[in-house]
């Protein structure tokens, strides 16, 4: 079975194996091995040639771009100009990308009146349009669960309900990013591509995310989405009113999420999902403002938060009349 004597002496080794460097067979063998190595390398280059296509979509400048928090105002301006030009080139749309920063003294929270919400799904559609989501996958940051009355156990609910709403004996539970005060998604990110800003909004630097999707596994609310493909949006449907950390067209291969429409809310407007809601179930505001509606609701209503036992401390509340 064995073809080698394990304890051959060094002398016989040297004479029986003609492969020690410096002898004739060496050069012949070297030539053969070199030829095979070259062939292998060429085959490898051919095998990975689709990467050239991918490389076309990433410029050297983008590759070298630093983390959002480390960009100087001038660098930010350059980056934003580049992104606007790219959107023009790829989507044929003229857009304006702002860099909206938190307003001092603001902490945004959201509340939904579950006694009023009737599951019509207008918020889901509004989010889809507002945030330039991929049309082919009908992406949105909001999911609405149809729940049987008498339980808060989501296992009993359904997100694929259809037909006339509201149905008797059902209530409707819209779920989106809860903008947690203890966000597990931020903790797990290996490259700090996602963080919580001073007004409570959890954001992602789409140009820093490496696409490992650990945050998607960590989020208990199914709030995060991955760009499995480059979003397809017709030019006339692109929302041109954009912000770097929110609804600008995202690159492929990165994670995104609800930003409480910071390109609107940081400019004093309301989130798109709220404006679209025909029932008035949604209330949004600054919890630090003592006279705000949201403050009154949280102080006077029976308020419920999702998965409280996980200790994520959501800035998103559900209440009943």
């Amino acid at each position: 079975m064995t073809n080698i004597e394990p304890n051959q002496s060094a002398d016989s080794q040297a004479s029986t194996h003609g492969d020690s460097p410096g002898t004739d067979p060496f050069t012949r063998r070297a030539a053969i091995k070199g030829a095979f190595a070259t062939l292998g390398a060429a085959a490898f280059v051919a095998a990975v040639s689709p990467l050239r296509q991918a490389a076309k979509n990433t410029s050297a400048v983008e590759f070298m771009q630093q983390h959002y928090t480390e960009l100087s105002p001038e660098q930010k301006a350059t980056v934003i100009a580049r992104l606007e030009a790219e959107t023009k080139e790829k989507y044929g749309a003229d857009v304006t990308i702002a860099d909206d920063r938190p307003i001092p003294g603001t902490k945004f929270v959201y509340a939904i009146n579950l006694s009023v919400c009737n599951g019509n799904g207008k918020c889901v559609e509004a989010c889809h349009r507002e945030n330039n989501h991929d049309r082919s996958t009908n992406q949105s940051y909001i999911r609405v669960i149809e729940m049987p009355k008498g339980t808060m156990d989501m296992e009993k609910g359904s997100t694929t309900y259809a037909g006339v709403v509201p149905r008797e004996d059902k209530f409707y539970l819209p779920v989106q990013c809860q903008q947690c005060d203890e966000p597990p998604c931020v903790d797990v990110c290996p490259v700090k591509a996602t963080w919580k800003e001073e007004d409570g909004i959890v954001v992602v630097d789409y140009n820093w995310c490496i696409g490992c999707r650990y945050c998607e596994a960590a989020c208990p609310y199914h709030a995060r989405r991955f760009n499995w493909k480059q979003a397809e949006v017709p030019a006339d449907e692109i929302n041109p009113d954009q912000s770097y950390l929110s609804n600008r067209v995202r690159p492929v291969g990165v994670v995104e999420k609800c930003t409480y429409c910071l390109h609107r809310t940081r400019r004093g407007r309301l989130p798109a999902c709220l404006e679209a809601c025909p029932t008035g179930a949604r209330v949004f505001g600054n919890i630090l403002d003592k006279n705000s509606n949201i403050r009154w609701i949280l102080e006077n209503k029976r308020v419920y938060i999702l998965k409280e036992e996980l200790g994520t401390k959501p800035a998103f509340f559900y209440y009943f009349d």
Partner: peptide, 23 residues
């Protein structure tokens, strides 16, 4: 498994942003 293997360098301590010890 990375969506952006071109950004692998973001993981390298020193030149990237290494979220240690939290992540």
């Amino acid at each position: 498994d990375l969506g952006r293997p071109d950004r692998f360098w973001h993981l390298i301590p020193g030149i990237g942003k290494f979220n240690w010890p939290i992540s």
